[in-house]
Nucleic acid binder design. Structure first.
Length: 551
RNA sequence: UGAAAUAUAGCUUAAUGGUAAAGCGUUAAAUUUUGACUUUAAACAUGAAGGUUCAAUUCCUUCUAUUUCAACCA
């Protein structure tokens, strides 16, 4: 009974290749650079790469693209592995581009010997200048015609530390007039006296992305090397190295990267938000990182569902963040236990309810599971949400207002008799009467009320901190804003509230998900302690109530 | 003044040389002890111009718009 889902264009290619017998088995790879945390855009790529080989019975390698020792770190390696596992995927091999430094070095020598690579003594500025522009071809410099022997000798010198950083590079000899800038004698190796997180001080020359990625794919015999659209112009070079080296022909296919409203996806910008402390860290719940979403209360399956829903194509896109929110609501609606929490409390006293009396009322943990219940304490003094009372109600106001009646969820119908205000004019207490025969489950009152509100017994509750998150940025596409993207940060992206919650929540461990009735889905934050419960709002409930103008 | 990629409802993704489909979002209504969920309904699309054709969103040409490309980053 599964609904037909059409293949995306990469699945079409894979099916075709399999059908034609081009490959017996496919192999993909996920190639992160360990210089930052994974974000929801990476999740799209992960779901694609691993999803492809799950669907077509192949394997996926995890390969760290660690060719730039100055920005990379093992902290990132560990977080990346954790995030992929958490998303529910497992790789068959864990590889590192640095595993291939020896091989890559041999490849470079091979190209020098073929007369296809040369050592250039120019400065980076000179090289950039000689590259020309989109409209003018580049020019060939004097080092381009060095002999094979000289190149071999100089490259050995580079490797052996005879030159300073920036003094020399190894370049491929391709075509300085190509319309593709990447083919104008791209740099293959540069000198860097930097400690590498895996190879230590063994090397002082490091290959660039283009000279490492395709060959790494080839060494691993990757059949389908999937990446994002910015790499389209690199494909010609990717193919060139593979062809000239005569190695296994991996193929590159590109899809459009994910963009999402009200957030940024560039690692550079995310790093800036962390470093400049606009957020508390990579796992701040406002970050679009996997770890941030996890802390905010997103589940692996909700993220996978999201990735499935956004699809794979080649056109630029800006996904509405409401789709992500839909995916987590849909799941949590069926799995998250209901609890009552009052985030912005105001006291309510039921004057005709005997002082000192209390009783237990029964509430469902999950709708549609009538057996699955808990008991909650009820009494004369309770807290309700400040927003559930309006002194001068708007039209179609179903909640509490002077003289108006409402049901307390799972308990009685009450009627607002009068209110009390403090010096500042704010409501400090709401006085009500209740109808004893209206008790939930035993209601003989025959009364009908439109509104049902949640509440917490004042004598049997615990204080709690609620962290209410909203969009990190004010505009839909912060990347498009001119000037500093940080000026667009939403000052209200985190609002901390102190309220109360029904008793019995003290021992909920980190990560547990709840629906706080009428307030939204929340999870226990890692900062939560028995003395100070902390809940993160994962996402609010849909709210179709739009206040009309006052009556 | 270059090259490449892309263009289907508000967003995302389908499909087809012959009635353009779905999810999200939006708007109504029903239901409801969560103004949630659920159910029902509604509105909204093939960038433009030519050409081939009985018939073009699909094929061809041109135009326009958007994105990407000149790091010793990936």
């Amino acid at each position: 009974m599964s609904e037909e889902k059409s293949n995306n264009f990469i699945e079409e290619i894979v099916e075709q290749d399999l059908k034609e017998g081009k490959y017996k088995r496919i192999l993909t790879r996920f190639p992160p650079e360990p210089n930052g945390y994974l974000h929801i855009g990476h999740a799209k790529s992960i779901c694609l790469n691993f999803g492809l080989t799950m669907k077509y019975n192949g394997d996926t390698n995890l390969r760290f693209d660690d060719t730039n020792p100055v920005t990379e770190d093992t902290e990132y390696v560990e977080s990346i592995k954790e995030d992929i596992r958490w998303l529910g995927f497992s790789w068959i091999n864990e590889f590192y581009a640095s595993d291939y430094f020896e091989r890559l070095h041999e490849f470079a020598i091979e190209l020098i010997k073929k007369g296809l690579a040369y050592v250039d003594d120019s400065t980076s500025e000179q090289i950039a200048l000689e590259k020309g522009s989109h409209t003018t071809p580049g020019i060939e410099n004097k080092y381009r015609s060095r002999s094979v022997e000289e190149n071999l000798q100089l490259f050995a010198g580079m490797k052996n530390g005879q030159f300073k950083e920036g003094e020399k590079v190894l370049r491929a000899k391709i075509n300085m007039a190509s319309t593709n800038m990447h083919m104008r004698d791209p740099v293959m190796y540069r000198i860097k006296y930097a400690y590498h997180h895996r190879t230590g001080d063994k090397w002082c020359i490091y290959p660039l992305y283009d000279f490492a990625h395709g060959q790494s794919d080839s060494i691993e015999k990757i059949t389908h090397s999937v990446c994002t659209l910015e790499f389209v112009p690199h494909r010609e070079l990717y193919d060139w190295y593979i062809k000239e080296l005569g190695i296994f022909p991996s193929h590159q296919y590109e899809f459009a990267r994910l963009n999402m409203t009200y957030t940024v996806m560039s690692k550079r910008k995310l790093l800036q938000l962390v470093n400049e402390q606009f957020v508390s860290g990579w796992d701040d719940p406002r970050m679009p990182t996997i770890s941030g979403l996890r802390r905010k209360g997103y589940t692996p399956s909700s993220i996978r569902l999201f990735c499935e829903k956004i699809g794979i194509a080649r056109r630029d896109n800006l996904i509405d963040i409401s789709l992500l929110e839909f995916c987590i609501r849909e799941e949590l609606n069926t799995t998250a236990n209901r609890r009552m929490a009052v985030i912005n409390p105001v006291k309510l006293i039921i004057e005709n309810y005997e002082d000192g009396r209390s009783e237990r009322v029964t509430l469902e943990n999950l709708p549609n599971e009538p057996e699955n219940v808990r008991e909650v304490s009820f009494g004369r003094e309770i807290y309700i949400e400040r927003e559930d009372f309006m002194e001068i109600p708007v039209k179609k106001w179903f909640r509490l207002a002077p003289g108006q009646m409402v049901r307390l969820k799972g308990a009685y119908i009450i009627k607002c008799e009068r209110i009390e205000k403090d010096q500042s004019g704010e409501v400090s207490c709401i006085y009500c009467s209740y109808f004893p025969e209206s008790k939930s489950g035993h209601d003989t009152s025959n009364m009908k009320v439109k509104g049902v509100i949640h509440w917490v017994h004042a004598l049997d509750c615990v204080p709690a901190e609620f962290r209410l998150y909203s969009h990190l940025f004010k505009s839909e596409n912060p990347a498009l804003e001119s000037g500093d993207f940080k000026d667009d940060i939403n000052p209200d992206s985190l609002i901390v509230k102190r309220g109360v919650i029904e008793n019995g929540m003290k021992t909920s461990p980190y990560g547990n998900h709840f629906q706080f009735l009428r307030n939204g889905y929340f999870c226990v934050d890692k900062d939560s302690k028995a003395e100070n419960l902390v809940f993160n709002r994962t996402v609010g409930l849909k709210d179709s109530f739009v206040p009309q103008k006052k009556n």
